[in-house]
Amino acid sequence: MTERPAAPAPATVLLLPGWQNSGDTHWQTRWEQGHGYHRVEQADWLWPRRGDWMARLDEVLLEPGRESCWLVAHSLGCQLVAAWAAHSGLTARVRGALLVAPPDIERADMPPQLGSWRPIVRARLPFAATVVASSDDPYATPERAAMMAADWDASLCSLGNCGHINGEAQLGDWEEGHRLLLALAAQAGSA
């Protein structure tokens, strides 16, 4: 009988939603409710500014009990992790990151609200990471998702056709994604 990897403590898992936040049917909201994970709230979900979101992540990581955290990002939250990791002095507090559906923010058809996020930060992440991509994501081709994973030195998991891996994909609690988080925790050494 194989042992299941231990789940990270709920207080140490930080959920990083993307542009416009994660709604009621989004797996991040369900993980927050079902596992007790902590959503990092941003001051402006509609007109996100990269520097503001990075500063907010620093603030949350400086809270008591956040010395060893796991990041679970969706969409623009993935770009937040990459930009934040390239500039923050707090990266040692992060054990690993699950980066789900990173958008290609360099595309010409991206909304103007996301202009401050260009260019994509392509530096290697200083912690273990897994990029989860969909073959029919309307915001990033599989090739661009693979490039981001390679640039960030993250492993890549392709889900097949799952759209933007959000509430519209009707994933429910998305147990497969939670297993990916547990596998990442086991790979990086859960603390």
Rank of each mutant, 00 (worst) to 15 (best):
H87E: 15
R4C: 05
R179I: 06
D104V: 08
E168F: 06
R30M: 09
L171K: 07
S68G: 08
D24Q: 13
E41A: 15
E143P: 08
T29A: 15
G18D: 10
R66Y: 13
C69N: 13
E32N: 04
C78D: 05
S75W: 13
G115Q: 08
A150N: 12
L98N: 07
W19L: 11
Q79P: 12
S190L: 07
G18H: 04
S135I: 11
A101P: 01
G18I: 11
D151R: 08
Q33N: 14
A169Y: 00
L46K: 08
T12W: 03
G51L: 10
C69E: 13
F127Q: 00
E67N: 12
P119G: 00
E3R: 12
I120E: 02
A97R: 04
D173G: 03
H74N: 04
P138H: 06
W117R: 01
A140L: 07
W27V: 12
V40G: 04
N21F: 11
L80M: 07
P103N: 09
E41I: 11
F127L: 00
L61C: 15
R107E: 01
A6W: 01
R122H: 04
A129T: 05
R93A: 13
R122D: 08
I120N: 03
P142E: 11
P17R: 09
G65K: 00
E3L: 14
V121T: 14
V131D: 04
G189N: 03
E175G: 07
I165M: 01
